[in-house]
């Protein structure tokens, strides 16, 4: 770690606000303003973790996204929460990128930067692949710890000890810095931006980069650089319904109990 403290990069994504209403994490009330888009909730957890680690160890939190210019809103939200600076990579040449091409663009920028910790979300709510974190860790040739629920750092030894979700419970994993983490629900409870935070966010730096700034061959970016593409979309096939019951609830219940009995899903010993 440098004298300046921990250098933390958080990869964030702006996602369409889901059609479902959102619950305010603090007041548990419905948020009624219809927001067209939002910060991916797993990335919000990532930003919060970055800020907490900086508060503890000193350093700097940079948030980075690749997306349309509108995604600057999401960057500004992170800055209002307390991140130090933002980078948005935005270019038509990057459109249509699959996860490999997206990770490649992020890699081309991040490899030029200094970092001790990179944080990604477990998944983004719109594409839901969870690919970007592991792709990026591989391209940067650093270790990855996914689905992290708790972080402890040993600054002297430059090591992290993390609790992570595993199929058989929770695993405790140690790795050297720099390392890439992905966030799990329960890692922390993200703060809401304060008014002061919102005001100071306006003075923070947001760098805008194009594909040319990233360098490298354009054929590695966007749709052209994507090994996968959507060939076709279609309606999901429906199963033929066998029976519809409606009307008097008592009769409906009687009929359904008969079905359960006939299908031997339940048995009557009377």
């Amino acid at each position: 770690m440098s004298k300046a403290g921990l250098r933390i990069i958080v990869c964030i994504k702006q996602v369409p606000a889901i059609q479902d209403i959102k619950i305010d994490p603090i007041t548990h009330t419905l948020i009624r303003e219809s927001m067209p888009s939002m910060l991916n909730p797993w990335d919000e957890i990532g930003v919060e973790e970055g800020i907490r680690l900086r508060e503890k160890y000193g350093g700097e939190v940079t948030v980075i996204t690749m997306g349309p210019m509108q995604a600057k809103e999401a960057i500004l939200r992170c800055l209002a929460m307390g991140a130090d600076r933002g980078i948005i990579i935005s270019d038509k040449a990057l459109a249509g990128a699959d996860t490999i091409a997206t990770a490649y663009a992020l890699y081309m920028q991040i490899k030029k930067m200094k970092y001790d910790l990179i944080i990604c979300g477990k998944i983004s709510t719109d594409s839901e692949t969870g690919h970007i974190g592991p792709h990026l860790a591989e391209l940067l040739n650093i270790p990855q710890i996914c689905y992290v629920k708790k972080v402890d750092l040993d600054i002297e030894k430059r090591r992290i000890i993390a609790h992570k979700e595993a199929d058989e419970g929770i695993e405790i994993v140690e790795a050297p810095l720099p390392v890439l983490l992905t966030t799990a629900i329960g890692l922390n409870k993200p703060r809401l931006p304060t008014l002061k935070g919102i005001i100071s966010s306006k003075r923070k730096e947001v760098k805008v980069l194009t594909a040319k700034d990233l360098g490298g061959s354009l054929s590695n970016y966007g749709l052209r650089g994507s090994p996968t593409f959507v060939d076709e979309v279609f309606e999901p096939p429906s199963r033929k319904p066998e029976m519809i019951f409606q009307g008097d609830p008592k009769e409906v219940v009687e009929k359904i109990v008969q079905v359960l009995l006939n299908k031997k899903l339940i048995s009557s010993r009377s």
């Binding site: 066998e242 029976m243 019951f245």
Partner: peptide, 30 residues
């Protein structure tokens, strides 16, 4: 569209009746 058996109705009316029926009239649900 995908249900094998479709019950159109209010769950708060259907469920208590169904639970009752399963409990009482079918002596032992197994």
């Amino acid at each position: 569209q995908i249900a094998t058996y479709s019950i159109v109705g209010d769950l708060f009316k259907i469920l208590p009746l169904l639970i009752d029926r399963l409990k009482k009239e079918v002596k032992e649900v197994k």
